[in-house]
Amino acid sequence: MAASRKAPSILGFPHRPELGPAAHRKAVAGHLRRCREHAGIAPPKAARFINISAATLSRMENGKAVFKATEVERLFDAYGVRDPLERARIDELVQEAAKPEAWQPYANAVPTLLRPLLAMEPAARRIISYEPQLVPGWLQTEEYAEIVIRAAHPTKPAREIEERVAVRVRRIEMLRRAETPPVLLAVMDSEVFRRQVGTPGVMYRQIQHLLALLEELPYQLHLQIAPLTVGAAGAIGHPVVHLRFFTPEYLPDMVYLEQYEGAVYQEKPAESERYQAILNNLCGVANPVEQTPALLEQALASWR
Rank of each mutant, 00 (worst) to 15 (best):
A270E: 08
F246T: 04
P136A: 11
L185R: 15
R171F: 04
A124T: 15
R164Y: 10
L114P: 03
V202W: 14
R164Q: 13
E191S: 14
S58Y: 09
S4L: 10
M254D: 00
R177L: 08
A27F: 14
P44C: 12
L19T: 10
G30V: 02
A263N: 02
G40T: 01
A226R: 09
P105L: 06
E92T: 02
A47G: 07
L175I: 09
I207V: 00
Q140P: 11
A286H: 11
K45N: 01
E290N: 03
F246N: 08
R82Q: 12
V230K: 11
E37W: 13
P44Q: 12
Q140W: 05
A22V: 04
A299H: 12
P136M: 11
H242V: 13
A47T: 05
F245S: 04
E71R: 09
W138Q: 01
I207W: 06
L221A: 02
M60T: 03
A151T: 11
R159A: 14
R59S: 06
E142V: 02
I225C: 04
E267M: 01
C283L: 03
N281D: 14
L282E: 11
P132W: 12
A186H: 00
L257V: 03
A299G: 05
S9K: 03
N281W: 13
L184W: 07
P8S: 09
P44V: 12
V165D: 12
V66M: 12
R48Q: 15
E179N: 11
S4I: 09
V230N: 14
P17W: 01
A123Q: 01
E160Y: 10
P17G: 02
L113K: 07
V264A: 12
T199K: 13
V110E: 08
E249Y: 11
Y256A: 05
V169S: 02
K156D: 09
P43A: 10
Q259A: 14
P200L: 13
R170W: 06
P181H: 06
G231W: 03
L279Q: 13
R304G: 08
L217V: 05
I90L: 07
A232F: 01
L217N: 04
R36Y: 10
A299V: 10
R125L: 06
R168E: 07
S272K: 06
A78D: 00
Q276V: 00
I90Y: 01
